[in-house]
Design a protein around this nucleic acid. Structure first.
Lengths: 120, 120
DNA sequence: GAAACCGAGTACCTCAAGGTAACCGAAAGA
DNA sequence: TCTTTCGGTTACCTTGAGGTACTCGGTTTC
Protein backbone atom coordinates (compact mmCIF):
# COMPACT_ATOMS: atom_id res chain seq x y z
CA UNK A 1 0.00 0.00 0.00
CA UNK A 2 2.82 2.35 0.89
CA UNK A 3 5.12 2.78 -2.08
CA UNK A 4 8.02 4.28 -0.12
CA UNK A 5 10.36 2.29 2.11
CA UNK A 6 13.39 3.77 3.80
CA UNK A 7 14.99 0.35 4.14
CA UNK A 8 15.35 0.26 0.37
CA UNK A 9 18.52 2.18 -0.49
CA UNK A 10 17.15 3.23 -3.87
CA UNK A 11 13.93 4.68 -2.44
CA UNK A 12 13.60 8.48 -2.58
CA UNK A 13 12.28 8.47 0.99
CA UNK A 14 15.79 7.52 2.04
CA UNK A 15 17.21 10.80 0.79
CA UNK A 16 14.24 12.68 2.22
CA UNK A 17 14.97 11.19 5.63
CA UNK A 18 18.64 12.12 5.35
CA UNK A 19 17.62 15.68 4.57
CA UNK A 20 15.38 15.89 7.62
CA UNK A 21 18.14 14.60 9.82
CA UNK A 22 20.97 16.77 8.62
CA UNK A 23 22.88 18.91 11.05
CA UNK A 24 20.74 22.05 11.15
CA UNK A 25 17.29 21.26 9.77
CA UNK A 26 15.83 19.95 13.05
CA UNK A 27 17.03 23.04 14.89
CA UNK A 28 15.72 25.45 12.27
CA UNK A 29 12.34 23.75 12.29
CA UNK A 30 12.31 23.98 16.06
CA UNK A 31 12.87 27.73 15.99
CA UNK A 32 10.43 28.38 13.15
CA UNK A 33 7.78 26.35 14.97
CA UNK A 34 7.28 29.40 17.19
CA UNK A 35 6.48 31.55 14.15
CA UNK A 36 8.19 33.33 11.25
CA UNK A 37 11.66 34.66 11.86
CA UNK A 38 14.20 36.86 10.14
CA UNK A 39 17.49 35.50 8.90
CA UNK A 40 19.43 37.20 11.67
CA UNK A 41 17.08 35.94 14.34
CA UNK A 42 17.57 32.39 13.13
CA UNK A 43 21.33 32.82 13.05
CA UNK A 44 21.30 34.13 16.61
CA UNK A 45 18.95 31.51 18.02
CA UNK A 46 20.49 28.46 16.39
CA UNK A 47 23.75 28.46 18.29
CA UNK A 48 26.88 27.66 16.32
CA UNK A 49 25.53 27.97 12.79
CA UNK A 50 27.39 30.18 10.33
CA UNK A 51 25.62 32.46 7.87
CA UNK A 52 26.78 30.45 4.90
CA UNK A 53 25.54 27.12 6.20
CA UNK A 54 22.29 28.62 7.45
CA UNK A 55 21.67 29.99 3.96
CA UNK A 56 22.38 26.57 2.46
CA UNK A 57 20.07 24.87 4.94
CA UNK A 58 17.24 27.33 4.32
CA UNK A 59 17.62 27.06 0.54
CA UNK A 60 17.45 23.31 0.74
CA UNK A 61 14.40 23.47 2.99
CA UNK A 62 12.77 25.93 0.62
CA UNK A 63 13.43 23.62 -2.30
CA UNK A 64 11.89 20.73 -0.38
CA UNK A 65 8.79 22.80 0.26
CA UNK A 66 9.28 23.05 4.02
CA UNK A 67 9.83 26.79 4.22
CA UNK A 68 8.87 29.99 2.39
CA UNK A 69 11.29 32.83 1.96
CA UNK A 70 9.95 36.38 1.80
CA UNK A 71 12.52 39.00 0.84
CA UNK A 72 11.67 42.69 1.24
CA UNK A 73 13.60 45.03 -1.03
CA UNK A 74 14.15 47.54 1.76
CA UNK A 75 17.55 48.82 2.72
CA UNK A 76 19.09 47.19 4.65
CA UNK A 77 17.28 44.11 3.32
CA UNK A 78 14.87 42.14 5.44
CA UNK A 79 14.14 38.48 4.80
CA UNK A 80 11.52 36.46 6.63
CA UNK A 81 11.31 32.70 6.77
CA UNK A 82 8.19 30.77 7.64
CA UNK A 83 7.20 27.13 7.72
CA UNK A 84 4.84 25.95 5.00
CA UNK A 85 1.88 23.70 5.76
CA UNK A 86 4.12 20.75 4.90
CA UNK A 87 6.86 22.10 7.14
CA UNK A 88 4.43 22.45 10.01
CA UNK A 89 3.64 18.73 9.87
CA UNK A 90 7.32 18.17 10.64
CA UNK A 91 7.25 20.14 13.86
CA UNK A 92 5.73 17.39 15.94
CA UNK A 93 8.07 14.53 14.97
CA UNK A 94 11.19 16.68 15.05
CA UNK A 95 10.19 18.22 18.35
CA UNK A 96 9.73 14.74 19.75
CA UNK A 97 13.25 13.87 18.73
CA UNK A 98 14.69 17.10 20.12
CA UNK A 99 12.76 16.45 23.32
CA UNK A 100 14.16 12.94 23.54
CA UNK A 101 17.70 14.23 23.17
CA UNK A 102 17.19 16.78 25.91
CA UNK A 103 15.36 14.42 28.26
CA UNK A 104 17.66 11.45 27.88
CA UNK A 105 21.00 13.18 27.37
CA UNK A 106 21.86 12.46 30.98
CA UNK A 107 21.24 8.73 30.62
CA UNK A 108 23.23 8.56 27.39
CA UNK A 109 26.15 10.35 29.02
CA UNK A 110 26.04 7.91 31.92
CA UNK A 111 25.89 4.93 29.60
CA UNK A 112 28.92 6.23 27.75
CA UNK A 113 31.04 6.65 30.82
CA UNK A 114 30.24 3.20 32.16
CA UNK A 115 30.94 1.70 28.73
CA UNK A 116 34.25 3.53 28.51
CA UNK A 117 35.13 2.51 32.04
CA UNK A 118 34.36 -1.14 31.31
CA UNK A 119 36.50 -1.23 28.18
CA UNK A 120 39.64 0.34 29.59
CA UNK B 1 13.76 23.33 34.71
CA UNK B 2 15.31 21.43 31.80
CA UNK B 3 19.10 21.70 31.95
CA UNK B 4 19.66 20.56 28.37
CA UNK B 5 19.07 22.73 25.32
CA UNK B 6 19.92 21.66 21.79
CA UNK B 7 20.06 25.28 20.63
CA UNK B 8 23.15 25.74 22.76
CA UNK B 9 26.11 24.45 20.74
CA UNK B 10 28.02 23.49 23.88
CA UNK B 11 25.18 21.39 25.29
CA UNK B 12 25.74 17.61 25.31
CA UNK B 13 22.19 17.09 24.05
CA UNK B 14 23.40 18.57 20.76
CA UNK B 15 25.82 15.69 20.20
CA UNK B 16 23.22 13.21 21.40
CA UNK B 17 20.82 14.52 18.78
CA UNK B 18 23.48 14.28 16.09
CA UNK B 19 24.06 10.68 17.05
CA UNK B 20 20.39 9.83 16.79
CA UNK B 21 20.20 11.39 13.38
CA UNK B 22 23.25 9.85 11.80
CA UNK B 23 22.95 7.86 8.63
CA UNK B 24 22.09 4.40 9.95
CA UNK B 25 20.87 4.72 13.54
CA UNK B 26 17.23 5.48 12.66
CA UNK B 27 17.10 2.50 10.31
CA UNK B 28 18.71 0.12 12.79
CA UNK B 29 16.29 1.22 15.51
CA UNK B 30 13.44 0.67 13.09
CA UNK B 31 14.49 -2.91 12.40
CA UNK B 32 15.26 -3.74 16.04
CA UNK B 33 11.86 -2.36 17.06
CA UNK B 34 10.39 -5.62 15.78
CA UNK B 35 12.57 -7.63 18.16
CA UNK B 36 16.18 -8.82 18.58
CA UNK B 37 18.11 -9.58 15.44
CA UNK B 38 21.39 -11.14 14.43
CA UNK B 39 24.15 -9.16 12.82
CA UNK B 40 23.56 -10.72 9.45
CA UNK B 41 19.82 -10.13 9.61
CA UNK B 42 20.42 -6.45 10.29
CA UNK B 43 22.90 -6.22 7.44
CA UNK B 44 20.40 -7.80 5.07
CA UNK B 45 17.39 -5.76 6.16
CA UNK B 46 19.07 -2.37 6.27
CA UNK B 47 19.63 -1.94 2.57
CA UNK B 48 22.94 -0.45 1.52
CA UNK B 49 24.86 -0.69 4.78
CA UNK B 50 28.28 -2.33 4.76
CA UNK B 51 29.45 -4.68 7.51
CA UNK B 52 32.08 -2.25 8.70
CA UNK B 53 29.74 0.69 9.07
CA UNK B 54 27.03 -1.47 10.63
CA UNK B 55 29.54 -2.61 13.23
CA UNK B 56 30.53 0.99 13.93
CA UNK B 57 26.90 2.05 14.23
CA UNK B 58 26.06 -0.80 16.59
CA UNK B 59 29.14 -0.14 18.76
CA UNK B 60 28.20 3.50 19.04
CA UNK B 61 24.62 2.62 19.92
CA UNK B 62 25.84 0.13 22.48
CA UNK B 63 28.08 2.76 24.03
CA UNK B 64 25.14 5.17 24.21
CA UNK B 65 23.10 2.53 26.00
CA UNK B 66 20.57 2.06 23.19
CA UNK B 67 21.42 -1.53 22.34
CA UNK B 68 22.77 -4.67 24.01
CA UNK B 69 25.11 -7.01 22.22
CA UNK B 70 25.01 -10.70 23.06
CA UNK B 71 27.78 -12.78 21.54
CA UNK B 72 27.49 -16.57 21.66
CA UNK B 73 30.77 -18.45 21.50
CA UNK B 74 29.38 -21.01 19.08
CA UNK B 75 31.02 -21.80 15.79
CA UNK B 76 30.35 -20.07 13.51
CA UNK B 77 29.72 -17.21 15.93
CA UNK B 78 26.27 -15.85 16.54
CA UNK B 79 25.69 -12.31 17.78
CA UNK B 80 22.32 -10.92 18.75
CA UNK B 81 21.44 -7.27 19.12
CA UNK B 82 18.49 -6.00 21.10
CA UNK B 83 17.16 -2.61 22.08
CA UNK B 84 17.57 -1.64 25.74
CA UNK B 85 14.73 -0.01 27.67
CA UNK B 86 16.27 3.33 26.75
CA UNK B 87 16.52 2.31 23.12
CA UNK B 88 12.87 1.29 23.10
CA UNK B 89 11.85 4.82 24.08
CA UNK B 90 13.45 5.94 20.83
CA UNK B 91 11.28 3.73 18.66
CA UNK B 92 8.25 5.99 18.70
CA UNK B 93 9.95 9.29 17.78
CA UNK B 94 12.21 7.71 15.18
CA UNK B 95 9.34 5.75 13.69
CA UNK B 96 7.37 8.97 13.44
CA UNK B 97 10.20 10.52 11.48
CA UNK B 98 10.58 7.50 9.22
CA UNK B 99 6.83 7.54 8.70
CA UNK B 100 6.93 11.21 7.79
CA UNK B 101 9.64 10.59 5.21
CA UNK B 102 7.67 7.77 3.63
CA UNK B 103 4.32 9.58 3.71
CA UNK B 104 5.52 12.92 2.44
CA UNK B 105 8.30 11.85 0.09
CA UNK B 106 5.98 12.42 -2.83
CA UNK B 107 5.19 16.00 -1.82
CA UNK B 108 8.86 16.77 -1.25
CA UNK B 109 9.74 15.41 -4.67
CA UNK B 110 7.03 17.56 -6.23
CA UNK B 111 8.20 20.65 -4.38
CA UNK B 112 11.72 20.05 -5.62
CA UNK B 113 10.76 19.77 -9.24
CA UNK B 114 8.63 22.91 -9.18
CA UNK B 115 11.42 24.77 -7.39
CA UNK B 116 13.97 23.60 -9.94
CA UNK B 117 11.63 24.48 -12.79
CA UNK B 118 11.08 27.99 -11.41
CA UNK B 119 14.79 28.71 -11.04
CA UNK B 120 15.92 27.62 -14.49
C1' DG C 1 42.29 -30.75 1.86
C1' DA C 2 39.57 -27.09 0.44
C1' DA C 3 35.82 -24.02 0.91
C1' DA C 4 32.00 -21.82 3.20
C1' DC C 5 30.19 -19.68 7.20
C1' DC C 6 29.76 -15.53 10.55
C1' DG C 7 31.07 -11.44 12.62
C1' DA C 8 34.04 -8.96 12.69
C1' DG C 9 39.16 -5.86 12.39
C1' DT C 10 42.42 -3.00 9.62
C1' DA C 11 44.54 -0.04 6.10
C1' DC C 12 43.57 2.92 2.81
C1' DC C 13 40.91 6.21 0.12
C1' DT C 14 37.20 9.42 -1.31
C1' DC C 15 34.08 12.89 -1.16
C1' DA C 16 30.97 16.12 0.30
C1' DA C 17 29.32 18.64 4.38
C1' DG C 18 30.65 22.11 6.82
C1' DG C 19 33.89 25.88 8.44
C1' DT C 20 36.86 30.41 7.59
C1' DA C 21 37.61 34.67 5.71
C1' DA C 22 36.85 38.11 2.49
C1' DC C 23 33.75 40.78 -0.07
C1' DC C 24 29.28 42.96 -1.79
C1' DG C 25 25.47 46.89 -2.31
C1' DA C 26 22.71 50.62 -0.91
C1' DA C 27 21.15 53.55 2.76
C1' DA C 28 21.37 55.68 7.16
C1' DG C 29 23.87 57.46 11.11
C1' DA C 30 28.46 59.57 13.16
C1' DT D 1 33.84 60.45 4.73
C1' DC D 2 33.67 56.42 7.22
C1' DT D 3 31.33 52.89 9.49
C1' DT D 4 27.41 49.99 10.38
C1' DT D 5 23.53 47.23 8.99
C1' DC D 6 21.50 42.95 6.63
C1' DG D 7 21.55 39.02 4.06
C1' DG D 8 23.87 37.18 1.55
C1' DT D 9 28.02 35.14 -2.18
C1' DT D 10 32.49 33.36 -3.36
C1' DA D 11 36.95 30.96 -2.96
C1' DC D 12 39.38 28.09 -0.31
C1' DC D 13 40.35 24.58 3.14
C1' DT D 14 39.55 20.95 6.75
C1' DT D 15 37.64 17.00 8.58
C1' DG D 16 35.47 12.99 9.44
C1' DA D 17 31.80 9.83 8.01
C1' DG D 18 31.52 6.37 5.22
C1' DG D 19 33.14 3.04 1.35
C1' DT D 20 36.46 -0.74 -0.65
C1' DA D 21 39.24 -4.45 -0.21
C1' DC D 22 41.62 -7.65 2.40
C1' DT D 23 42.40 -10.57 6.45
C1' DC D 24 41.18 -13.61 10.44
C1' DG D 25 39.48 -17.83 13.44
C1' DG D 26 37.67 -22.04 14.10
C1' DT D 27 34.22 -25.61 12.77
C1' DT D 28 31.44 -28.05 9.63
C1' DT D 29 30.51 -29.70 5.00
C1' DC D 30 31.92 -31.42 0.47
Amino acid sequence: MQPFDVLNPACPSRTVLRHLTDRWTPLVVGVLAAGPARFGELRDQVGGVTAKVLTQTLRSMERDGLVVRRALATMPPRVDYELTALGRTLVEPLDALRGWAEQHAGEVLEARSSYDEATL
